[in-house]
Design a protein around this nucleic acid. Structure first.
Length: 441
RNA sequence: GCCGAGGUGGCCCAGCGGUACGGCGCCAGACUUGAGAUCUGGUUCCCUUGUGGAUCGGGAGUUCGAAUCUCUCCCUCGGCGCCA
């Protein structure tokens, strides 16, 4: 949630930010309308309550002095009737105001490019040598200006076909038992996934992260604090009859971990590495990536999360992006880094970098990592502060994927494919964890 | 799931129908060459900053008035039951 005081004091800051995001500023107008009414009402309520408190004290003294308090009591009863009606109205106003305030997105960072769509994201840098099929060279060059590449004479087999040829993913039976976008992962691919997980955990542990396996379900309050309306609508599974939602990323439980707490400044930054399955409805993505394990309802992800002082958060943003990049470099997966458009950030992030790995079979860069600085937006909703000189302040929170297993596995399959297309080799960094070097038929 | 005990400001703790006691910590000032000790003040949130309002796990109720009484939900601890 945004800072309502700041919004009152400096509306133009928010109008500008919303415009750049392509967010309808009518919501801001509505907020101010309701807020004005709310403040007027509050004044009236406080006056009546003041009067009431005084009268109650009079009752107390009257009783002590042996006088009859019934007349004063009658007056207070009248005030209570009056109060109930104003307070009822006030609650409605406040509910609407809160509902609307929660829709207002975080203030945009200066470094976020002003554009609207996914495609317009600004190229930051590239790494590695991409294997590019001839037909894709033109679009590749557009997407990654200056990046090294080698030309492939044939298009690598798509992971969808490859996993079924080898027999390491059963999609048909998953469709039978659970529906589309589910999978039974099998044999060496399971081992490879676990290798990836263990590798990532070691990797982050060495870089000062505490390892956390969080609850895979959160109650409404925690989830609402950690995320936004869009996530609720499009991605979250609800447990029937219970106040619980399946998490769509470890970010949310890690964010809510310190809910309603005040941290010691000396304990900051807090670096957490979350490992969890991620459950996503993928509503609104019908027709996209319908086959295989690229876009699924359930996958495992290792997530980086940092709580820090506001003045340090951009340094930690760089740290998170660097960790994720180093992760993909060590897996020898070529990628580009893009600075996400103001219009494509979501409500929480003030700036977001994605890492997009090159997928030779698809002939595209696809998102494998998303790193955000949510500044104090998430911490304000979750009420997470730290003790600072001159008063408690909201911490800044940042998150970034370290590795999401399914997508990383697909990237490995496509980039490391054997020449005869019968399988693929395991990245060197993972061999100590798998105990084998290739996965083939 | 059942029984019992609990949930009070950053922490500990008192109050158990008359408007949140005390301690610790922290911040500021005084004293000091400095630190410590000591003393004084402050230390949750809201608004149009006042002899203002709210706040005792959440919500509802009784009352002129609720931390205190009633109902309900949540959580913690202990015991019993069930269980991978």
């Amino acid at each position: 949630m945004i800072d309502i005081k700041l919004l009152r004091e400096n509306p133009s800051l928010f109008y500008d930010s919303c415009k750049a995001r392509g967010f309808d500023t009518k919501v801001l107008d509505q907020f101010f309308q309701l807020d004005e009414k709310w403040r007027e009402n509050l004044k009236a309520i406080n006056q009546v309550k003041h009067e009431k408190n005084n009268l109650s004290l009079e009752v107390s003294t009257a009783v002590k002095e042996g006088r009859d308090p019934s007349q004063i009591k009658e007056k207070v009863r009248d005030l209570n009737t009056k109060l109930a009606s104003i307070e009822g109205e006030q609650k409605e106003i406040e509910d609407s105001r809160t509902r609307i305030a929660k829709l207002i997105p975080n203030l945009l960072d200066k470094g976020a490019p002003h554009c609207l769509t996914e495609e317009e994201a600004v190229l930051v840098r590239t790494w590695g040598t991409a294997k590019v099929f001839q037909e894709d060279i033109e679009s590749f060059k557009k997407a990654a200006n200056g990046m090294e590449y080698e030309v492939l004479e044939s298009r690598p087999t798509s992971h969808v076909d490859l996993v079924q040829d080898i027999g390491i993913v059963d999609l048909e039976r998953a469709a039978k038992t659970s529906g589309a976008r589910f999978y039974f992962m099998k044999n060496r691919l399971v081992k490879l996934e676990m290798a990836l997980v263990n590798y990532a955990l070691d990797f982050l542990s060495e870089r000062g992260f505490e390892l956390v396996e969080p609850p895979f379900m959160l109650n409404y309050k925690a989830m609402e604090g950690a995320t936004d309306v869009e996530t609720f609508k499009d991605t979250l599974y609800k447990i029937e009859g219970e106040d619980l939602y399946l998490i769509s990323t470890a970010e949310h439980p890690l964010a809510a971990y310190f809910q309603d707490e005040i941290l010691e400044e000396s304990n900051l930054p807090v670096r957490l590495a979350g490992i969890s399955p991620c459950f996503r409805k993928e509503a609104g993505s019908h027709g996209k990536d319908t086959k295989g394990i690229f876009r699924v309802h359930q996958f495992t992800k290792i997530e980086q999360f940092i709580y820090c002082r506001p003045e340090d958060s951009w340094d930690f943003f760089d740290e998170l992006v660097k960790n994720s990049e180093d992760m993909f470099r060590s897996l020898e997966l070529p990628y580009r880094v893009v600075n996400i458009c103001s219009g494509d950030l979501g409500n929480l992030a003030s700036r977001k970098f994605d890492i997009e790995a090159w997928f030779p079979s698809q002939g595209k860069f696809r998102e494998v990592v998303s790193a955000s600085n949510d500044t104090d937006y998430q911490s304000r909703s979750l009420n997470i502060r730290y003790r600072a000189k001159g008063g408690n302040r909201f911490v800044h929170t940042l998150n970034s994927t370290a590795v999401a297993t399914t997508r990383a596995l697909v990237a490995i399959m496509e980039n490391n494919q054997l020449k005869d297309q019968t399988g693929f080799h395991v990245p060197k960094a993972l061999i100590p964890y798998t105990g084998f070097e290739t996965i083939t038929k």
